[in-house]
């Protein structure tokens, strides 16, 4: 999978300088992370982390302050109370990328990488589950910096093929995510399984925070085709002959209604939903997310 370069070093460098913004990520997406009922229960020191506004003053390591004249927070293994599960869709439909744009899979992988980078940088644990028709590799959440590269390797080597099974992935996470955690789903949701919203709500009831990043290509949203075309399904190889001049309006109505229905159902269940357009640079998408624009689509 060397041709899938999910790591954009320049992007990560730009994101790593945003300490304050990382705090906003905590407040925005990862709300409640530092108010875990289990914090301080462990005595196994994990690492130091630079103080940021909102941190408990009692966690400041005064000895370190005396040595370095800077505020550091002592963190222990069990105090990493935010556990984030990144669920990345690797089904065949995610292989689509119109024009010069990256495929949806590559875009989702880069976005997941950026989020993981930020979370790991601020000491949170990040796990990964890739899924197509069947579940792919699962990496449990870890907060070690080197865990980042395990996530990257997993994203790079996972094949992109087969049908989508979002519900299966969520069910799997529901089993393994014992404590409250953040679950981020990056998928085009092309399995049209009505149980998606039900299981997302169920996870939310278990006090997990669930965010659905709905990754779609602009071609899917605007349908810019003009000539008579035979469309071939990426997941099933089925074909459909269509004249876009005659059915574009109906297509746009259909996909708009689907996106809106999905968004409404998820938001009703207190599940975050964001429609991600692959024409938008990943960096801007991350800024939108950490900017805490709330639930829903940035491109409503």
């Amino acid at each position: 999978m060397s041709d899938r370069e999910v790591v954009d070093a320049a992007l990560l460098a730009r994101l790593s300088g945003l300490t304050l913004r990382a705090g906003q990520v905590v407040e925005g997406i990862l709300t409640g992370m530092h108010k875990s009922p289990h914090h301080g229960s462990s005595v196994e020191f994990a690492q130091h982390r630079e103080y940021s506004p909102g941190d408990e003053i009692r966690h400041i390591d005064w000895k370190a302050f005396a040595k370095s004249d800077r505020y550091y927070i002592k963190q222990f293994e069990d105090e990493t109370n935010l556990r984030c599960h990144l669920l990345v869709d690797t089904s065949g439909s995610m292989a689509y990328g119109g024009g010069d744009r990256p495929s949806k899979m590559l875009y989702a992988a880069r976005l997941a990488t950026a989020l993981a980078w930020m979370l790991l940088r601020q000491g949170d644990a990040v796990g990964l589950l890739t899924f197509g028709e069947s579940l792919g590799e699962y990496l449990p959440p870890r907060a070690r910096p080197d865990h980042f590269w395990r996530l990257v390797r997993a994203l790079e080597k996972t094949p992109v093929a087969g049908p989508t099974n979002v519900v299966g992935a969520l069910e799997r996470i529901a089993e393994v995510a014992g404590r409250r955690s953040l679950i981020v789903l990056l998928s085009d949701c092309m399995d049209f399984d009505p149980r998606l919203t039900a299981i997302a709500r169920q996870l939310r009831r278990r006090r997990h925070r669930v965010s659905v990043l709905h990754v779609l290509d602009p071609d899917e949203l605007d349908f810019p085709f003009k000539e008579l075309t035979e469309f071939e399904e990426l997941e099933t190889d089925e074909r459909e002959l269509a004249d876009p001049r005659g059915m574009r309006d109906a297509y746009l109505d259909e996909i708009r209604a689907w996106c809106e229905g999905l968004r409404r159902d998820l938001l009703d269940g207190d599940v975050n939903y964001r429609l991600v357009d692959t024409a938008v640079p990943v960096e801007r998408c991350v800024y939108d997310i950490v900017g805490g624009q709330g639930n829903g689509s940035a491109r409503r």
């Binding site: 995610m94 008579l228 075309t229 059915m247 109906a250």
Partner: peptide, 27 residues
């Protein structure tokens, strides 16, 4: 006719069902 591999075939199929007849008549 150009063959395009496209993910949202389900929507095309639904749209075709709705409009193909009218469009074909017009064409």
């Amino acid at each position: 006719a150009v063959v395009v591999r496209f993910p949202a075939l389900e929507f095309i199929r639904r749209s075709n069902r709705k409009t193909a007849r009218q469009f074909r008549v017009k064409q």
